[in-house]
């Protein structure tokens, strides 16, 4: 199926995106013709119970995995048309990542980790912008430290800084606060919120934590590979109420 991409200001969008694992009787429909759009300069949270397909959606949108059917676009680019190599270059130049853990290369120090995508591209990046991002991490004199010499919160701030440094179209974050305590989590989410508000970045975050999701501008709810609901200007209480409604 080929659908012409609708004109949009979305940083990333999915059109009838379907992902099927396996085949025949054992086939699992992880994403079921999802249509979703992530607008520029907004912070969106994707929520849903385990197995709802939220991680699959994120991987497909970020170009880490391919949809079985439908379209995924980053900016104007249709990911399904890209070769493996072009997909890699797109991730390098247009997408930022923050994972739950193992975000950093242990043999590189903090600033080298932040510069990694630019180094891979062989470019210097936008120096003024990078200075701003690096300054925002508040790492100061710890920039030359290896990841093992940084706290969990510092490590995740470096990871967010790396995601920001290349000025990507969109940043995908997969449970970025899943591995840290509450205070550190709030500090990281504040840093991300700041990136959206002050730096105009677009962030899509997968989480199952209502408090974390409440930092977003909008929450999208996923159940059984379908978007079932969404919520603007969420608070933890409203999110929990919605979750309960969905019977998750």
């Amino acid at each position: 199926m080929s659908v012409a991409a609708p004109p949009t200001h979305a940083a990333a969008q999915a059109v009838a995106a379907t992902k099927i694992y396996g085949s025949g009787d054992t086939a699992v429909r992880a994403l079921d013709a999802i249509d979703v759009s992530f607008e520029q300069g907004r912070f969106t949270a994707i929520m849903g119970p385990s197995g709802s397909g939220k991680s699959t959606l994120m991987h497909c949108m970020a170009g880490l995995d391919r949809v079985t059917d439908g379209q995924v676009l980053i900016g104007e680019t249709d990911l399904s048309s890209l070769s493996e190599r072009d997909l890699t270059l797109l991730r390098r130049d247009n997408v930022g990542f923050v994972f739950q853990a193992y975000n950093l290369i242990p043999t590189l120090n903090a600033i080298e980790n932040i510069m990694l995508p630019m180094d891979l591209a062989g470019s210097k990046g936008d120096t003024a912008w990078i200075d701003e991002v690096v300054g925002a991490t508040g790492l100061g004199d710890r920039l030359k430290h290896r990841p093992s010499e940084l706290s969990g919160g510092q490590q995740q701030r470096v990871a967010v800084a790396r995601a920001l440094a290349g000025k990507p179209q969109v940043i995908f974050a997969d449970e970025p606060t899943g591995n840290v305590d509450l205070n550190t989590g709030a500090e990281i989410l504040g840093f991300i919120r700041n990136a959206v508000d002050e730096m105009g970045q677009t962030v899509v975050m997968v989480t199952h934590d209502a408090v974390a999701a409440s930092f977003a501008d909008r929450v999208v709810f996923l159940v059984d590979g379908k978007i079932v609901d969404e919520l603007a200007d969420p608070t933890p209480e409203r999110i929990r109420a919605h979750m309960n409604q969905l019977g998750a």
């Binding site: 880490l64 493996e84 190599r85 890699t88 270059l89 991730r91 390098r92 130049d93 990542f97 994972f99 193992y102 975000n103 950093l104 290369i105 242990p106 990694l116 995508p117 891979l120 591209a121 790396r162």
Partner: peptide, 16 residues
């Protein structure tokens, strides 16, 4: 394996 995955995710090409 994780480190390699991360490098690939943030845009290291297979050749690199």
């Amino acid at each position: 394996i994780r480190e390699i995955g991360l490098l690939r995710a943030v845009g290291m090409t297979r050749r690199q």
